[in-house]
């Protein structure tokens, strides 16, 4: 089984994990790190040392492409793209909703409405169901939350806006998963379900932004 490095800088603390699909060998959080003071290289070096592995053993680099803190996500994605390129291995882009949704779904056997804060009071929303992210969108939370879950009988909620969602969806059966974010190690478990995709150079990982092609048009959802 191939050795994967997972990098998650979508929120503080930053995280790295090292392991094989289905089996985490090492994971660590760097509590004090900010984008300006980070040392991802040191975190990765320590992960390899602590688990007795070498850089040359890595067969892929998974990286959280957000949604999340813009500058931090971009830092992790830049690092992961460059490391993957330098080692000649593919990069595995994963969204924070896939990690968050998989972590929340493990405890709640129902679809998960994932949310993340964005600038100007906007939000990212996504539905994670049957082990995969069904879709993601971006816009005003209060308008989009009911529309996003309209077709779902039961739903769990995860991410930044859990408290607001309890109010916005109060006439529905909603379970608060208590999950704020997935962990870097979550990727290794999720990948064991056959999920995740490898991209080899010249393809690179790209952070999720409000103009991302991965987003479903909010206006269309609200129609």
């Amino acid at each position: 089984m191939s050795l994967l490095l997972v990098i998650d800088t979508s929120a503080r603390p930053f995280e790295v994990a090292l392991g094989r699909v289905g089996a985490c060998l090492y994971s660590a959080r760097a509590a004090a790190m900010t984008p300006n003071k980070q040392d991802l290289a040191a975190m990765v070096t320590e992960a390899l040392r602590a688990s007795g592995q070498s850089l040359r053993d890595l067969q892929g680099i998974a990286v959280n492409i957000g949604p999340g803190a813009l500058g931090s996500v971009r830092s992790g994605v830049s690092f992961a793209n460059a490391l993957a390129y330098s080692l000649g291995v593919p990069v595995h882009p994963v969204t924070s909703f896939e990690l968050m949704g998989f972590a929340a779904a493990a405890a709640q056997d129902r679809p998960v409405l994932c949310t993340a804060r964005a600038s100007d009071g906007q939000a990212y929303l996504g539905v994670f169901a049957a082990g995969r992210l069904s879709f993601m969108t971006f816009g005003a939370l209060d308008a989009l939350a009911p529309a996003t879950v309209a077709d779902l009988d039961r739903v769990a909620i995860a991410g930044d806006h859990r408290a607001a969602l309890c109010t916005l969806l109060r006439n529905r059966e909603v379970i608060d998963s208590g999950v704020d974010r997935g962990t870097a190690a979550t990727y290794l478990q999720w990948a064991a379900t056959g999920a995740g995709e490898a991209r080899a150079f010249p393809e690179v990982a790209t952070p999720i932004t409000e103009d991302s092609a991965l987003l479903r048009d909010a206006a269309e959802l609200l129609r």
Binding site: P35, A41, F79, A82
Partner: peptide, 12 residues
Amino acid sequence: LVGLNTAAGLGL
């Protein structure tokens, strides 16, 4: 930050 992290990844 993009350049610095890219350099850090390559350097590693």
